[in-house]
């Protein structure tokens, strides 16, 4: 029974739909998502949005924590270079993400699981495209298995 619940929680059944966490910066990407909404542009409903002040606020720990807790993919989206509300937050983020992505892929994590994008407040169309692409990529990869926390007792049962 417990097995079944685990399967269910992280969605390994037949009608599986990926769960993707999207960290959107307050000033650009979140507004971009808003624009996509008010413009009635269709995109997959697989993302759960967390609004953050700046892509520079995203600690790699957040991304790893998402994967550990059963998200199948993570998207981080911020302002285009030069547009950061805090001048340089996204430049610093870009270095952090480059290293994180390289490291995870070197270890053997699927490249599509963790993705990054720049989406401005005026790019409702692009936001929809990004979410569609990320969702498609994660769907192809199937449910996350690496780094996922399994709370079942791992020690020998005796």
């Amino acid at each position: 029974m417990i097995e079944a619940k685990v399967e269910n929680t992280i969605g390994r059944h037949k009608d599986w739909q990926p769960k993707i966490l999207a960290f959107l910066c307050n000033w650009c990407s979140y507004a971009g998502a808003d624009l996509a909404g008010v413009s009635r542009i269709q995109y997959p409903p697989n993302i759960r949005v967390v609004r953050i002040p700046c892509s520079g606020r995203v600690n790699p720990i957040f991304i790893l924590k998402c994967l550990q807790n059963g998200f199948d993919g993570v998207l981080v989206s911020g302002c285009h270079p030069g547009d950061c509300h805090y001048i340089s937050g996204n430049y610093v983020a870009r270095r952090k993400f480059a290293v994180l992505k390289t490291l995870l892929e070197f270890m053997g994590l699927e490249p599509g699981r963790v993705q990054f994008s720049w989406v401005s407040a005026g790019e409702g169309e692009k936001f929809a495209q990004v979410v569609t692409k990320v969702t498609e990529d994660v769907k192809k990869l199937g449910p996350a298995r690496k780094l996922v926390r399994n709370l079942e007792p791992t020690e020998t049962k005796y």
Binding site: P60, K65, Q68, L103, L147
Partner: peptide, 25 residues
């Protein structure tokens, strides 16, 4: 408390990944 303290594989792997990231460069 960000991560579990047991020897669960995902916790230990994340500890090592984050340590590498924190010492990056």
């Amino acid at each position: 408390q960000w991560f579990g303290k047991s020897t669960d594989l995902s916790d230990t792997m994340i500890f090592h990944i984050v340590r590498v990231l924190h010492t990056a460069g």
